[in-house]
């Protein structure tokens, strides 16, 4: 199985993301630079966190015009898993691969700390290795992670089971405590918390691991 970790100018969680995938058995992973125009041969694409293009204009707004994003649109349409974390989530929203937007945190502060999340739906390719309503501790690190969507969009996300993670104690003002959502097809995930930072007990926890295992299981069953 081959995983691509996209790298934009200003990405800074790309090494953590690659490191997390390297812990998975039989996974080959590599960086793919923003200027590449093909994602052929990859089974999963991860869009890491950071400050792509210095967060100029709006977070993720410039990154979405990178050549690799056109390839990512096609990749996502093919139904293969795409995961965007933090700035990666912002990029996926700006690119229209996910619905809604991320606003400045309600309290204006950049928040960097472990946060409790609840698995709101474990029937997805990203969360199948969690149990329903399992409470996880996964760090957040963002200034603009206040998820917003209108009521109509929320109703649709909710009824389709597209809300995968919710904050237990809303840290940033996100609408309805939303921490992570997927698209209607269920193959594109965006989340503000950083699962790639909790994959080794030595580094503070392993609550992020089942997410990577979930994706791995999905890919293996598909090819089996």
């Amino acid at each position: 199985m081959k995983v691509a970790v996209l790298v934009f100018p200003g990405s800074n969680c790309d090494q953590d993301m690659l490191g997390a995938w390297q812990l998975m058995p039989k996974v080959e992973c590599q960086y793919v630079f923003h200027s590449e125009s093909s994602l052929e041969g990859f089974d999963v694409v991860a869009v890491p966190g950071g400050f792509s293009y210095g967060d100029y204009l709006r977070c993720g707004a410039i990154a979405r015009f990178s050549p690799v994003m056109k390839a990512l649109q096609e990749f996502a349409e093919s139904g293969k898993p795409v995961i965007g974390v933090c700035n990666g989530f912002q990029i996926l929203l700006e690119a229209g691969l996910l619905e809604g937007a991320l606003l400045r945190n309600e309290g204006l502060s950049f928040i960097c700390r472990p946060e409790k999340l609840r698995v709101a739906n474990n029937h997805s390719m990203f969360t199948s290795a969690y149990s329903e309503n399992q409470v996880l501790e996964i760090p957040i690190a963002h200034g603009e992670g206040n998820y917003y969507c209108d009521a109509e969009t929320y109703a649709r996300l909710k009824s389709n089971g597209q809300i995968l993670f919710e904050y237990e104690n809303n840290p940033n003002g996100s609408f309805m405590n939303i921490a992570g959502i997927c698209n209607s097809k269920g193959n594109v995930l965006g989340m503000m918390p950083h699962p790639e930072r909790v994959v080794e007990s030595l580094l503070g926890g392993t609550d992020g691991l089942p997410l990577f295992h979930s994706i791995l299981n999905f890919c293996q069953h598909k090819t089996a």
Partner: peptide, 8 residues
């Protein structure tokens, strides 16, 4: 296409 995020 660029200057405005029409969602917000």
């Amino acid at each position: 296409k660029l200057l405005v995020n029409e969602v917000i």
